[in-house]
Design a protein around this nucleic acid. Sequence first.
DNA 1: CTGAAAGCGCTAACAC
DNA 2: GTGTTAGCGCTTTCAG
Lengths: 343, 343
Amino acid sequence: MSRIPGRVPTQPPTLADVAELAGVSRQTVSNAVNNPDLLRADTLVRVQEAIEQLGYSPNRAARNLRTRASHLIGLRMNPGQEFTANAAMDRFVHSLVETSGEAGYHVLLFAGSGTDPLAGYDDLLRSTAVDAFVVTDTYLGNPQAAWLRERRAPFVAFGRPWDDAEATHPWVDVDGAAGTELAARHLLDKGHERIAWIGWRKDSWIGEDRRAGWSRALKARGLSTSGLASRVEDTIHSGREASAVLLDEAHPSAFVCASDTLAMGVLHTLADRGLRAGQDVAVIGFDDSQVAQVVRPGLTSVRQPLEDVASQIVNALEGLLAHPPRVGPGILLTPTLAVRGSS
Amino acid sequence: MSRIPGRVPTQPPTLADVAELAGVSRQTVSNAVNNPDLLRADTLVRVQEAIEQLGYSPNRAARNLRTRASHLIGLRMNPGQEFTANAAMDRFVHSLVETSGEAGYHVLLFAGSGTDPLAGYDDLLRSTAVDAFVVTDTYLGNPQAAWLRERRAPFVAFGRPWDDAEATHPWVDVDGAAGTELAARHLLDKGHERIAWIGWRKDSWIGEDRRAGWSRALKARGLSTSGLASRVEDTIHSGREASAVLLDEAHPSAFVCASDTLAMGVLHTLADRGLRAGQDVAVIGFDDSQVAQVVRPGLTSVRQPLEDVASQIVNALEGLLAHPPRVGPGILLTPTLAVRGSS
DNA sequence: CTGAAAGCGCTAACAC
DNA sequence: GTGTTAGCGCTTTCAG
């Protein structure tokens, strides 16, 4: 009488309730859920009907306690830069949630402190709240990697271990150089010969990597890059100024930029001077952000395959959490070019 | 000998380890963590030192099992519309993570199915994986609200119960009408008298709400709205077409739009015709998305106070989960206007 | 293939 | 104030 199907029970049903209804032991119900193969077919059906009837789902806390696993993946959200390269972050989180969901994992978000790159990780780890982490902010080295490895915390990094070639942790990254090389080639094929670069300051590994692709493409065609490159802050204003200077001094017919933000700055300069993007001067950005898609006349941009990144990360995570753990080599994915009016 | 401080233990320390080191019972350690007032000062210090020394954090699963609470808040991510009104979502999630973190909660992300508005909720609820939900997708009524309430699942909605004035669940929303009224007044104060509206199709409550603010502002100044409004799909293309038609037929000197997307369409039309946004025709969007900030000459836009929304939601959540539960009235917050070059 | 017993780490209730 | 007992709901032995 205590559990009337269709009515909302005060307490969710437990294994014992299902066992009683199905006329088997609790253990058998557990097996029906976790190792159905062990049951005889008719018993299995009877148990499954009881589960269905009661709307039973195993209590997460109890299961976690027993199995020492939470099926949760921790992901740190950095204090929101209002408009920066993290435009891609949103898309990545979406993909990660969907992919990890299919693998039986949920994503646990926690806040970072901005100053301390380790904040938040420690507590979740010690309280065994998550099974693993996905570490995304590896742009300036990654102290997290060393720290997490030291505590034997499973994690997969989105981003190469730039500062440590010996690092053995699993990672997935996008080949930025291949992306900018793709962009530069696209322009070369259109007949451009003076292609300028606007990137980030030299202390950014990602920035230098992206720059290398542009440089490689030009050199492969026997073209010089000298005087055609500029390194600035990642703001529209900087992109605008840098492109103005380059136009005056080096007369490029096209720009490849390390980000859509910088590319927007170039578009502003072109508009200032009555030049038409795509017609008079070509521009290519990086990240395929929303702005690239809506600005006139459409900004050609390098697009990171974030769905694939998420999928590979979840894959690596599953290996890491398997018994015994499987840890594969780092994975480098190739971006694509979203071609629009600006090129 | 089993736990050497400074070294990484194979197993995290437990209550028992701390109790042994401090020379007290397990219960006393538990009290030291949860009810420090109950301990004598010197005992408390001794226990805290032991906790510190071992790097102890209470095991989440065990605590959850015992207290029947997970300190997790479920948030559903809808399948990523590549570019839509969910531009604001990212900002909201950030705020929610930070605010709820301060209140001792973490955010659990799960994937929605796109077709079934209830997908994902059920399992998390039955397995008691989360303490409560934050429901965001209330744009077309909210079947979740009725469903969740029926199962006595605690939740707070971001969005009014448009379709059910009798609804008693806690909610927080932004007063869209106040936002568009602010926008229209801003234009009226600049001397505009023919202000057009481009909004969504009539079946959108949010859209009709935003439209009402524009209409109210015009009528308050004794101006007619007839022929000045258009209702279309939320795409750039639609905004472009609608504005072209309105310019031809109604000769407005300014536009207020239900979204930045539509406003971008207007900017395209102006560019097509050689009209300068802000100089010849004013344009105001809604959501203060990234594009509003980077497009030339800057798009004036209604900005939702998402930080405040998150804060109020967490506040409501804390009330809901208190013993006994406190449930307050719905909360309506007022947006602000981010003024840029387009107006 | 099924059942009985034990225990994961913690906290609520009660004794001392 | 502190210690003892019990049990949250589940899964992992190990018998039958």
